[in-house]
């Protein structure tokens, strides 16, 4: 479980996150939705400590991450897996080396075991026979999947995904979404997914937080989302004609 309490974060005097609080439970897909520029990435990066917050607390299973000495933080970090908006694979390493990287860095396993684990993770994301290719030699969707494989290599307790399906076709996007949901349930991870894709919201939105202009405007599940009378949320969801039509049918 991850708990964010009253997070405030600003850059150069401009406040991006305005007092955001939220609780993310394990074993379910927690979604953060909001317009481009609303602060989703900043929020996710603040949770994992890539941005130091101005004030507020972040608790990882009751461990206060914000006030912890660096030594303890590193321990918590090794329980995190993160998927970045642009995949962020290491270009100088092959697919297999990318997935093996966390294992090479943090485990004492023999090379054979590490390779086996890497192959297992690659199979888990339905990738085979690409081990020796470089990131530039595979498609965007495959890169995303490699990045997921790398994020889960160490069996993390906490999984963070920043727009896992941006730039993918609808079919691949759904495959990735479902993959994230399956892994979350399988290993009882605490998973947080940033997205502005309504398909994801409806598909895997078990717990949804809507951020508007750096503030939490709404919270609920994909079942509640059509019933909400929150104006900003409705403007966001029903921006497309398609979803307006759905609403009229309901």
């Amino acid at each position: 479980m991850i708990e964010a309490r009253n997070i405030i974060k600003s850059f150069d005097g401009k406040t991006i996150l305005k007092d955001v609080s939220a609780v993310f439970k394990p074993g379910q897909t927690n979604l953060i939705i909001g317009q481009s520029g609303s602060g989703k990435t900043v929020f996710l990066k603040s949770l994992v400590g890539l941005h130091e917050v101005d004030s507020g607390d972040i608790l990882y299973d009751d461990r206060d991450f914000t006030r912890m000495p660096d030594k303890d933080r590193i321990k918590v970090r090794q329980e995190m897996g993160m998927l970045f908006q642009g995949s962020a694979l290491f270009d100088s390493l092959t697919v297999e080396e990318n997935v093996r990287f966390p294992l090479d860095m943090f485990t004492k396993q023999k090379l054979d075991e590490r390779r086996e684990r890497a192959n297992f993770c690659l199979k888990r994301v339905n990738l085979e026979n690409v081990n020796h290719l470089y990131p530039s030699e595979i498609s965007g969707g495959m890169q995303k999947r490699v990045a997921i494989a790398r994020a889960i290599a160490l069996n993390p307790r906490y999984l963070f995904c920043d727009e896992p399906n941006s730039g993918l076709d609808p079919k691949t996007a759904i495959v990735i979404d479902e993959l994230i949901q399956e892994i979350t349930k399988e290993y009882n991870m605490t998973t947080i997914v940033n997205t502005h894709d309504m398909n994801s919201v409806l598909g895997i939105g078990e717990h949804i937080i809507f951020i508007f202009n750096g503030e939490k405007y709404w919270e609920g599940s994909s079942q509640d989302i059509f019933q909400s009378d929150n104006k900003e949320l409705n403007d966001f969801i029903f921006a497309s004609k398609f979803f307006r039509k759905i609403k009229d049918k309901l």
Partner: peptide
Amino acid sequence: TMRVTEQIDVLDVMG
């Protein structure tokens, strides 16, 4: 390049 493509963030998140 590693910085702007978030590869450095990947290292930092891993500790």
